[in-house]
Design a protein around this nucleic acid. Structure first.
Length: 741
DNA sequence: GACCTGCTGCGGCCTG
């Protein structure tokens, strides 16, 4: 609390609400040695003590949001915390629940409020004890809450009968996702079983438009949610974007089968700068993909070895074993020796690793909002935040694609930094129908009650529930589709029951999660599990591998047990992980890119090489006269520049394909095979017809079934969900008109 | 051009 102006005790003039906390809670605050409550903690007291209001507490990481919620909640429970579970805390990670359990236990011990953990790693004994004498606070994951509905359906109302508070941690991580939709449905079903609403508290990072978060927290009544915001405000930011030239593919030596010890020079150059700048301190290096995390972790470790230093660089990603990840986190947090973690999005949120000296981002950031989240990890002790961005662009040749000539990666990164500096970032996704999760919630509802009437299910899930965008008509079609696929059956009185396939789904534990997962091999070296890899990897005895930032050779593969045994090796190869969905660039980013191409400003955070690359990008833009036109012909191809986000680009591509044209998209550019007149004709026809119906555009989409249960959803409903998520018909129509001008 | 998250019940074996 050193960054706060000190006062003698937390009951100072600024802390008037402090007196309203229970005496025992105030005593706990004093014993913590806190000089005063933080802004968010102060602001939360009155609305939460009221016990009737939904509240969002938004503040940066490590600002004491959990205490902000639980000081008043524990005050309310201090005299009597028994009879049933009285407060539920839902967290997205088991590790986070374990953290909060430790912290809450100290506060609750003196108040005689029992605190229970419930997730996959908690013993059945503990769970049985809570079911027997429910009381106090329950910390749980959405999946375990789902399991409670299915396994303890009839006991649920009793278990939660006296429930007064629901707290959702990391609210922003749930918004717009299947998992978030599942959580909304579960909370709604808790309230249905109690026949009353239970006030909700959402803990969130600061989001630009908090009304979206409020509407997520309380669907249908977001306007009534009380917002408590304590934005510490942006401190000083030290920024650098470093450009690198990468040899073009045809100038590179062919990769042979034997793994070579040499990395392409550009990776070496980036690695050398990382090593030189980061060694001796504590940092996070975001490398975008698990493969790149392995590549740079291995490279930096070898640089330490070459310099005869103990290793300071450790990888961190979702396929590494819990053990290796926790070791890396602990080493960084302990600050006893210099440690930098090379990571994916795993370290964007949740686990507390303390503050670090600087953030490095290798490659284009996935979005402005993730860049902002990553930046929040640095410079917390009042010092400046430091961000270094490393960007590689291909050396140009006669056959370089237009996107290389335009230095799209560099310009997109500059655009994102400019938007970050103006404090803009992408809002969370909205508008999807989430039919996949509707499949799950319907089956779960049937399992909970043993059977439901179609009308009741519609009321519970759609009409008053989180699937409000699904009409009665669509719901009937949806049910019919599930019946055909044997997920549902119907008894003679019309009650919906689980069908043959539905029964099988619900009875397997994998049903509790709203998201799908693939089977993977376990990698073991010397009896120690290093992590997992997808099973479709061609792995043979003798194959070289880089994993956990080290080099290995496959010693044995045990197909039955899905175990791969490894031994240390001098050489290695970065594994290919299963690629998943596609990135989505926002309209604002592409608009900003155009402004950068057309402008002549030279951002001060660019290094000499990045300035060169920017000059090349602008030269290409001018040579093609892209300031005055958006369609250019080149050889056998026509390039269209919508200067809009991926949803619009994707929609335009499908609309042109529907008119028989062959289209390829490369970042911001649509490349069409054929004559300019054909493309313009197709666009003119598109404009004349008005905004296209998104469902008809999806005819050319190869695979729309992207979510877990999409395979069971009737085709036309799936098309509508896909269009709502990934397409922008209105935007594409508007842009088509502009492009033709 | 991607990333992350989560999970029950039960049978079988071992140890104290």
């Amino acid at each position: 609390m050193s960054s706060h102006p000190s006062s003698s005790d937390p009951s100072g003039a600024a802390s008037s609400a402090f007196h309203r906390l229970h005496p025992q809670v105030r005593r706990w605050v004093w014993t913590q040695g806190w000089k005063e409550l933080r802004g968010i903690q102060e602001a939360a007291i009155v609305p939460i003590l009221k016990g009737t209001q939904d509240v969002i507490l938004s503040a940066s990481t490590a600002s004491g949001k959990t205490e902000a919620a639980f000081l008043p909640i524990c005050s309310r429970l201090a005299e009597d915390a028994g009879g049933s579970v009285r407060a539920i805390y839902v967290g997205p990670l088991k590790a986070l629940i374990n953290d909060q359990f430790e912290r809450l236990d100290g506060l609750c011990e003196g108040l005689h409020i029992p605190v229970h953990r419930w997730h996959g790693d908690v013993s059945q004994g503990h769970k049985a004890r809570l079911l027997q004498s429910p009381a106090g606070i329950l910390l749980i994951t959405p999946e375990s809450l789902e399991a409670l509905f299915i396994r303890q359906g009839s006991a649920l109302a009793g278990l939660f009968s006296g429930l007064e508070h629901i707290v959702i941690d990391e609210l922003h991580a749930f918004i717009g996702t299947e998992r978030g939709c599942q959580l909304q449905s579960l909370l709604h079903r808790v309230e249905l079983s109690l026949r009353r609403t239970v006030p909700r508290v959402g803990l969130s990072a600061t989001l630009g438009d908090m009304s979206l978060a409020a509407e997520f927290l309380r669907p249908g009544a977001g306007a009534k949610v009380r917002l408590c915001n304590s934005d510490s405000g942006g401190g000083e930011l030290l920024l650098q974007l470093r450009g690198y030239r990468k040899r073009a593919p045809d100038m590179r030596t062919e990769e042979d089968e034997e793994p070579s010890d040499d990395l392409p020079e550009d990776e070496h150059d980036v690695g050398a700068h990382l090593f030189k700048t980061l060694r001796g301190t504590h940092n996070l290096v975001f490398a975008n993909s698990r493969a790149n995390v392995e590549l740079y972790a291995d490279l930096l470790r070898r640089m330490c070895e070459d310099a005869r230093l103990p290793n300071e660089f450790f990888p961190h990603h979702g396929n590494l074993s819990k053990e290796l990840r926790e070791e890396a986190e602990a080493a960084l947090k302990a600050k006893q020796r210099p440690v930098s973690l090379v990571c994916t999005t795993t370290l964007e949120m949740g686990i507390d690793v303390g503050s670090v000296q600087s953030i490095a981002q290798v490659g284009v950031p996935p979005s402005v909002s993730s860049l902002r989240q990553r930046l929040g990890r640095s410079g917390r002790k009042g010092g400046p935040s430091v961000l270094r961005l490393y960007l590689q662009e291909a050396e140009l040749t006669k056959t370089s694609p237009l996107s290389d000539q335009l230095r799209v990666r560099l310009v997109q990164s500059v655009a994102m930094l400019e938007l970050l500096l103006t404090n803009w970032f992408e809002p969370p996704a909205s508008g999807a129908f989430h039919f996949s999760t509707l499949v799950q919630q319907l089956l779960s509802l049937i399992a909970q009650h043993g059977g439901v009437k179609a009308g009741e299910a519609f009321l519970a899930l759609c009409h008053e529930g989180p699937f409000a965008r699904v009409s009665r008509e669509d719901f009937v079609r949806f049910l019919r589709g599930l019946g055909q696929r044997e997920l549902l059956s119907q008894s003679s009185d019309g009650t919906l029951l689980l069908g043959r396939v539905g029964e099988r789904l619900v009875n397997h534990y994998s049903f509790y999660a709203a998201f799908a997962s693939v089977e993977e091999f376990r990698l073991v070296a010397g009896g120690r599990t290093l992590g997992t890899m997808p099973i479709d990897q061609p792995l043979f005895v003798g194959t070289y591998l880089i994993f956990g930032g080290r080099r290995w050779r496959v010693l044995a593969v045990q197909g039955d047990e899905k175990v791969v045994e490894l031994e240390p090796a001098p050489a290695g190869r970065v594994p290919v992980f299963e690629p998943t969905g596609v990135g989505r660039v926002h309209d604002r980013v592409r608009e900003q890119m155009r402004a950068i191409y057309a402008g002549d400003g030279l951002p001060r955070y660019l290094d000499a090489r990045a300035l060169e690359l920017l000059a090349e990008a602008r030269a290409t833009f001018q040579r093609w006269r892209l300031n005055e036109r958006s369609i250019v012909a080149s050889g056998m191809e026509v390039h269209v520049f919508p200067w809009a986000g991926d949803a619009v680009v994707h929609t335009l591509a499908l609309a042109l394909q529907a008119r028989g044209l062959s289209v390829q998209t490369l970042g911001p550019v649509l490349s069409v095979a054929g004559q300019q007149a054909d493309v313009e004709g197709a666009l003119r026809a598109l404009v004349a017809e008005g905004p296209p119906r998104a469902e008809s555009l999806t005819r050319h989409v190869v695979n729309m079934a992207l979510e877990k249960h999409d395979g069971f959803v009737p085709e036309d409903l799936l098309a509508r969900d896909y269009a709502a998520r990934y397409l922008d018909a209105e935007g594409a129509w508007r842009v088509a008109r502009q492009v033709l001008q």
